[in-house]
Measured scan of single mutants.
Amino acid sequence: NTKMVRFKKGDSVGLRLAGGNDVGIFVAGIQEGTSAEQEGLQEGDQILKVNTQDFRGLVREDAVLYLLEIPKGEMVTILAQSRADVYRDILACGR
């Protein structure tokens, strides 16, 4: 149940992230009207890879910085997997 989305970065990627470290990086929110939303990313999706950067094992701050450093107008390719069950557990633990 993995999906790959590809879009051109606007002012931002339009994602709020949660998790990090051993639990993985998850989409915690999506800005309305962004390409990330239009391409089908959803809250609870685990981000496995962005462009050439493996997101598994990253701390959340490093994942956020990586997304911020992608220049506006560059193509962004995100490999994600729907993991809403794991995401709910992360929220319940306050991570």
Score class of each variant (00 low, 15 high):
residue 88 R to N: 13
residue 48 L to V: 04
residue 28 A to C: 09
residue 11 D to A: 06
residue 31 Q to C: 14
residue 50 V to C: 03
residue 75 M to K: 05
residue 77 T to M: 07
residue 7 F to K: 09
residue 7 F to V: 06
residue 54 D to Q: 03
residue 40 G to L: 05
residue 94 G to E: 15
residue 32 E to I: 00
residue 25 I to A: 05
residue 70 I to W: 06
residue 72 K to G: 04
residue 67 L to K: 02
residue 72 K to Y: 10
residue 91 L to G: 12
residue 66 Y to T: 06
residue 41 L to V: 07
residue 66 Y to W: 03
residue 64 V to N: 12
residue 76 V to T: 04
residue 50 V to W: 00
residue 57 G to V: 06
residue 87 Y to M: 10
residue 51 N to R: 01
residue 58 L to A: 06
residue 13 V to R: 05
residue 95 R to A: 15
residue 73 G to N: 06
residue 84 A to K: 12
residue 15 L to K: 03
residue 10 G to S: 09
residue 54 D to T: 07
residue 64 V to Q: 15
residue 33 G to F: 00
residue 77 T to P: 02
residue 57 G to T: 10
residue 80 A to M: 01
residue 76 V to S: 01
residue 29 G to N: 06
residue 3 K to M: 06
residue 74 E to I: 03
residue 21 N to R: 15
residue 15 L to N: 14
residue 48 L to D: 05
residue 21 N to A: 15
residue 79 L to W: 14
residue 43 E to W: 09
residue 49 K to D: 06
residue 32 E to P: 15
residue 47 I to E: 03
residue 7 F to T: 00
residue 94 G to D: 14
residue 52 T to A: 12
residue 71 P to F: 00
residue 74 E to R: 04
residue 6 R to M: 10
residue 90 I to Y: 14
residue 23 V to F: 07
residue 53 Q to I: 08
residue 61 E to Y: 03
residue 80 A to R: 02
residue 95 R to Q: 14
residue 64 V to D: 14
residue 18 A to E: 14
residue 88 R to W: 11
residue 51 N to S: 05
residue 50 V to E: 00
residue 28 A to N: 01
residue 95 R to M: 15
residue 21 N to F: 10
residue 9 K to H: 01
residue 11 D to V: 01
residue 87 Y to N: 12
residue 84 A to M: 15
residue 84 A to Y: 14
residue 1 N to A: 03
residue 34 T to R: 04
residue 51 N to G: 06
residue 16 R to D: 13
residue 26 F to W: 10
residue 93 C to E: 15
residue 31 Q to F: 00
residue 36 A to Q: 06
residue 12 S to F: 11
residue 25 I to Q: 06
residue 29 G to T: 06
residue 81 Q to W: 00
residue 44 G to Y: 01
residue 43 E to G: 03
residue 90 I to R: 13
residue 72 K to T: 08
residue 6 R to W: 07
residue 89 D to F: 02
residue 43 E to K: 08
residue 39 E to P: 02
residue 39 E to I: 15
residue 89 D to L: 05
residue 8 K to A: 08
residue 72 K to H: 03
residue 17 L to W: 01
residue 16 R to Y: 11
residue 36 A to H: 09
residue 65 L to S: 15
residue 76 V to D: 04
residue 45 D to E: 00
residue 46 Q to T: 07
residue 40 G to H: 02
residue 90 I to H: 13
residue 53 Q to W: 03
residue 76 V to K: 01
residue 22 D to Q: 10
residue 85 D to W: 03
residue 64 V to I: 14
residue 5 V to S: 01
residue 9 K to V: 01
residue 37 E to C: 14
residue 29 G to S: 12
residue 5 V to L: 05
residue 41 L to E: 01
residue 90 I to W: 15
residue 95 R to E: 14
residue 5 V to E: 01
residue 89 D to N: 14
residue 1 N to C: 12
residue 30 I to K: 02
residue 52 T to Q: 13
residue 23 V to N: 11
residue 50 V to N: 05
residue 18 A to R: 08
residue 57 G to I: 03
residue 19 G to N: 02
residue 37 E to V: 08
residue 50 V to H: 01
residue 37 E to M: 11
residue 34 T to K: 01
residue 13 V to M: 13
residue 55 F to V: 07
residue 57 G to L: 02
residue 37 E to G: 10
residue 68 L to N: 15
residue 57 G to K: 09
residue 81 Q to A: 11
residue 71 P to H: 09
residue 74 E to D: 11
residue 35 S to A: 15
residue 73 G to A: 03
residue 11 D to H: 08
residue 91 L to S: 12
residue 39 E to W: 13
residue 28 A to T: 12
residue 15 L to A: 06
residue 42 Q to A: 12
residue 37 E to S: 12
residue 48 L to G: 00
residue 60 R to I: 15
residue 5 V to D: 05
residue 19 G to F: 05
residue 6 R to Y: 06
residue 25 I to R: 04
residue 95 R to C: 15
residue 72 K to P: 11
residue 20 G to K: 05
residue 64 V to A: 13
residue 93 C to L: 12
residue 8 K to H: 06
residue 15 L to Q: 00
residue 13 V to W: 10
residue 49 K to V: 08
residue 30 I to W: 06
residue 69 E to Q: 14
residue 64 V to T: 10
residue 15 L to E: 08
residue 9 K to S: 01
residue 33 G to T: 01
residue 10 G to H: 04
residue 33 G to V: 02
residue 49 K to Y: 07
residue 59 V to A: 15
residue 5 V to Y: 05
residue 70 I to H: 00
residue 65 L to Q: 15
residue 17 L to V: 04
residue 45 D to G: 02
residue 70 I to E: 03
residue 23 V to K: 09
residue 57 G to P: 04
residue 25 I to P: 06
residue 38 Q to K: 14
residue 30 I to D: 05
residue 6 R to E: 08
residue 11 D to P: 00
residue 93 C to M: 14
residue 81 Q to S: 07
residue 56 R to I: 04
residue 12 S to V: 10
residue 80 A to C: 11
